[in-house]
Nucleic acid binder design. Sequence first.
DNA 1: ATGGTAGACAATCTA
Length: 264
Amino acid sequence: MRIATWNVNSIRTRADRVVAWLQRSDVDVLALQETKCRDDQFPESRFTDLGYQVAHVGHSQWNGVALLSRVGLEDVEVGFPGQPGFGSPEPAVEARALGATCAGVRVWSLYVPNGRTLTDPHYEYKLRWLEALRTAAGGWLAADAGAQVALVGDWNIAPQDDDVWDVRVFAHSTHVSEPERAAFRAIVDAGYADVVRPHTPGPGVYTYWDYTQLRFARREGMRIDFVLGSPALAARVTNALIDRQERKGKGASDHAPVVVELRD
DNA sequence: ATGGTAGACAATCTA
């Protein structure tokens, strides 16, 4: 079984590329972020034609997350249970979390709030959102230590200095601040391991490259897209990759897909 | 060089 996550930066603009990628990558579950469309605008038939079931929680202009699965898509849920206001469309511009069970694995497509700047109210909201996620995700393991849970998506956090091309450039910026990194570590400490990094060691290994400043050509990126797995999920991981080929050429998203392979 | 690029939507906002 293969699970992937990809911030596509508009599913309508990227549909041809996503379809082509699905057809050659043998992925069973694909979590999408930044779909940038309302639910009624999602090009669902492009994916149902390929045998995938589709769930989407959208927004008129930005963010929006989806789950595509060809191995079942059950108990679809928006937001974090017991954490009202986080993950559901309130506050409207930032919160996105969509969960579903696919072949026994609870997969959450997450778009962690960007934060904008260290002094913006959205930064504090980002930290609260991550705390709500930690509380919810910790609760799932407290209820069932053997649960197979994958927390996947765009985390908008670079947990280590090596996860950006030059940490000096990011001084006083979001994504690398200690509170954000602590929030990420708290979720790891709650039992969710980064299952991709062991298979894709850095430095210089990224999942995102800004469109400006020739960042991709200069190999100046950030590792901010992650798959965190519960113990039972992590035990099944046999391989992982970041498909940086998909960042190349005209019409690419600014993020690359991240893929994990699970043993049966 | 006070910028750069991309996307939504139609004047700016977001990333």
